[in-house]
Nucleic acid binder design. Structure first.
Lengths: 342, 342
DNA sequence: GTTCGCAATCGAAACGTTTCGACTCGGGGA
DNA sequence: TCCCCGAGTCGAAACGTTTCGATTGCGAAC
């Protein structure tokens, strides 16, 4: 495990008979270097196996070429989307030859600011953003570069990529309406997950309400936490509301729903229709195959990193705001069972 | 976005009327500093809002206080365990006040060595390790600090944390045998996923074979890829082998199995028993609730990071090797259906 | 009353880059 | 012919830490 003194630019300079600064310019291209010199330098680098020392670069040039993703700590639950975001962000980050730091997300902004101010990262990506989020306010006030996966209420000057939950739920309700359903449920994430003003929850609910109103439908929202006990509540609801023949689920809330339906002996989609708003990587693992509105989580992660890095590379760039939608894939939804029709 | 010149140790030294080195010692405790001086320094730090600049620290002390997790790139599939490993590693890393870098894993070792030699990370964690893995050989040869989630054939001097798949499959077979099953299937990962000598695949198969032999049972191994078409093959197998009344699944291979059983109208567990070797975070989302042998993926990620960091902090420490087991939780397994008994 | 050792402190030299200003050398425009 | 300019290069000064060696008092041991 002995760290043998590694080869530095000084060694390269000696070996190729030029000044250290010339080596630097040959590598960065920030000043012109004759083709011949560049060639000699490159040869020396290959022969000696030189790798520029990143902390030294970061120290002098005041840029770490790294971004940090603040990741929700999840000891007990599988925050599926988060993980996919991360994979996407990793792809973009390595494409741009940046490093991706992952940090544990906390409610208060101090950890985030510390990551930036200690020079560990040049910018950060936040997820599980609230409509009014003090981390965002702090970063905006301090002028730190960041991007959101999600968005706030006021997104002035902010780069974000988000999924249009409002539209997705609305689309789902229309789909179910057209199939003949007249009473649908929305299984929304419980506020406990990310506070009362968690964007996706609020916007999903808004889309649900407006679609119901538009179509004069009956609808109920159920708030699902992550505990296993959650499924009991869904079960009770289904028993209480026999006219409800379809449901829209967000993220992993399909799980308590399917469990409850199974216990009640109701088949999907013959007896009950389900539209899941969820990443395809997750729905691929579910039986029966669900009708989904695919949330492009991987792409969102990719874009979240990309819009941040682009701004880091060029601070003239205006913020990028992206609101994505996903296709409806019909698989587990059909007309309501006959017995529930008049 | 203007980076205003930040406060450094020099500012702290001036403000508190001591030398820069004294500030450093007051912070690190590597030499004694009078209580009064330490107090003055601390006050100055609070007043000025000083944060030590990490790249400078890393440059001088030749340690980045970061580890890098090499993460499989997965555009199309949800590598569920990997994600949970990552969460666990993140927890340990932040507990030890290290940074966690995530890098895209490639087959060849050059990227890994680069991460280490550029001083971006002090050590690395590898996953999806093969029985004979050239990344491991390279790291071992170069004397770089690393740990594995998984293990090789020859683990001399290597720190790793792995799950005992051999034992788990063996336990599962015994469980099914005791319930009365006489022909069981093992749904193993396809070799394409991680080469022909992917440890978990090989060891699961070994455990399967030895248990079959011991109990004089009939058994078949099916290799499952990640494609959706996979499920057709499972379906064909089940049709072909009517005496097979139970299966053991590894990781997400439960998905094609459940889909196929559903298509055949076979209920779980009444008509068919399933034992899934899988992380609880995943099985919690599956309907019906599966009998599982819980793979403590979060803990594995935690430990993988912890054993690496402990070695980084104290290079006298011998390597740590951990082979974990998980409890059997009976939920979707029962006696075989009567019709298949003589 | 020396001498020794230790606590507390300081100044300076790194660590390995990037970048600024200055220098040289030719060639082209005046 | 003189001057200017740009391409190509160099040396040196940073960047913000850590750490080494040296220096000062001061109480204890002789």
């Amino acid at each position: 495990m002995r760290r043998t003194r590694s080869v530095t630019m000084v060694d390269i300079a000696k070996r190729s008979g030029v000044a250290v600064s010339t080596v630097s310019y040959a590598l960065s291209g920030k000043r012109s270097v004759s083709a011949e010199t560049r060639e000699r330098v490159k040869r020396a680098i290959d022969e000696l196996g030189f790798r520029p020392h990143e902390p030294a670069r970061a120290l002098k040039s005041r840029a770490s070429r790294a971004i940090s993703l603040f990741f929700p700590t999840a000891r007990d639950t599988l925050e599926i989307e988060s993980h996919i975001f991360l994979s996407g962000a990793l792809e973009a980050t390595s494409e741009f030859d940046y490093s991706l730091l992952v940090s544990t997300a906390t409610h208060d902004p101090s950890g985030i600011v510390a990551t930036l101010e200690t020079g560990r990262a040049d910018g950060v990506i936040l997820m599980e953003v609230r409509l009014s989020d003090e981390r965002v306010e702090k970063l905006r006030a301090d002028g730190h570069p960041f991007s959101l996966i999600g968005r706030c209420e006021d997104n002035d000057g902010i780069s974000y990529v988000d999924f249009d939950f409002e539209d997705a739920v609305c689309t789902a309700v229309h789909h179910l309406y057209e199939l003949g359903h007249r009473h649908v449920a929305l299984l929304n994430r419980a506020p406990s997950i990310a506070g009362a003003d968690y964007g996706p929850t609020v916007r999903s609910h808004a889309g649900f309400q407006s679609a119901l109103r538009e179509l004069s439908l009956e609808g109920d929202q159920l708030l699902c936490g992550t505990s296993g006990a959650q499924y009991i509540e869904v079960l009770r609801f289904l028993e209480r509301a026999p006219t409800c023949t379809a449901a829209i689920t967000l993220s992993v809330t399909y799980a308590p729903l399917l469990a409850a339906l199974r216990d009640l002996g109701r088949r999907v989609p013959e007896d009950f229709s389900v539209v899941a708003i969820i990443a395809s990587q997750v729905s691929d693992l579910v039986t029966p195959p669900l009708t989904t509105i695919d949330m492009p989580a991987y792409e969102m992660g990719r874009l979240g990193a990309e819009i941040l890095i682009r701004r880091l590379m060029d601070d003239e760039l205006p913020p990028t705001q992206l609101l994505l939608r996903g296709p409806l894939q019909v698989r587990s939804s059909g007309p309501p069972p006959r017995r529930s029709r008049p």
